[in-house]
Amino acid sequence: MKQFNNKVVVVTGAASGMGREYALEFARLGALVAMTDVNEKVLAETHSMVQKITDKYTCCEVMNIASQEDVLAFAEKVKNKLGNAHVIINNAGIGGGGAPVWAQDMDQFQLTMNVNFFSVVSMTKAFLPQLLSNQEGAVVNVSSVFGLIGTPGTSDYCASKFAVRGFSESLMVELADTPISVHLVHPGGIKTNIAKDSKNGAEFEEKYLKTSPLTAVRIVIDGIKTGKQRMVFGHQSSLLRFLTLLPLKLRNWTLNREMSDLRDPEHYELLSAMGEK
């Protein structure tokens, strides 16, 4: 897809960070933007910013992205208000529980998978008929550099982003003979608020989250235009990509050493106590 003027672009997680920048940038490019997020107040701010850029129709919906019923209703609303979607940006996500496996309960694993992975499946299935009806379209699924490599204290998050990767790579093959392109995005170190709720979120942000969301969004849009199927970018993404080439034992040692200062001592006291039982 080479241009987006008068095309319908759907963005999830549009209230802030990369999601907001997707909505604003596509509005600048002349698209009809449909945006959704669970945060009503901040989504309204994004919608207001979009309306200052364009006088074209928009669609704004507060929605629980993890609800399949809500996703199907949103897809129908977009179609009725704006027409069939041309591009879907599956951007919504949460940072996960921020704890090692033994310190994290199953409810957190389920929540992270529902928001980060199953919502991508639901959105894709809901909107794919619209893209096919247009005989033109792009599905953009946002994984993470943590969808390339497992890191400590992020098992639920990594699992969800690895799942997005596997789903997207399969979808690429399945849609290879159609006019629909599939793009898998692995951002690294983007300066968003995704880590704000974790115990060491501020420390993690200061150390790793450096790349501006707008820079990331423009890389993705260029990738859609050129048909690039995998995009890996952002602060320290090259280093993490290099680590995937190392023997697993050496990679694990390197990651353990690099991220040891972000450990919560209480989690490892719990691990010791478990071993004493």
Rank of each mutant, 00 (worst) to 15 (best):
P179T: 12
L209M: 12
C158G: 08
D177I: 08
D197T: 13
A176C: 05
P179E: 11
C158T: 10
D156T: 02
G201C: 12
P179K: 13
S212K: 15
G166L: 02
G166M: 09
K199F: 13
V173Q: 02
V185T: 05
Y208I: 09
G188D: 06
M172S: 06
T211S: 15
K191T: 10
K199C: 09
A195S: 08
L209S: 07
K210S: 00
K191R: 15
E174I: 04
L184R: 09
E203N: 05
K199V: 12
S181F: 01
Y157A: 09
A195I: 02
N200S: 13
P152C: 05
H183E: 10
D197K: 14
D156L: 03
E203W: 03
K161P: 02
A202R: 11
L184F: 07
V185S: 06
G166A: 14
Y157S: 11
A195E: 06
A202E: 15
S155L: 07
T192I: 10
T211V: 13
I180A: 07
V164T: 01
K196L: 01
F167T: 02
K207P: 10
K196P: 01
C158N: 14
E205L: 04
F204V: 09
M172C: 04
I194D: 11
L184V: 14
L214M: 13
L214N: 14
Y208V: 12
H186I: 00
K196W: 00
A163P: 12
D156P: 03
D197M: 09
L171M: 14
L209R: 08
G189P: 02
Y208C: 07
R165A: 09
L184S: 10
D197I: 09
S212F: 11
Y208M: 15
K207C: 09
P152I: 05
K191S: 14
L209D: 02
M172R: 07
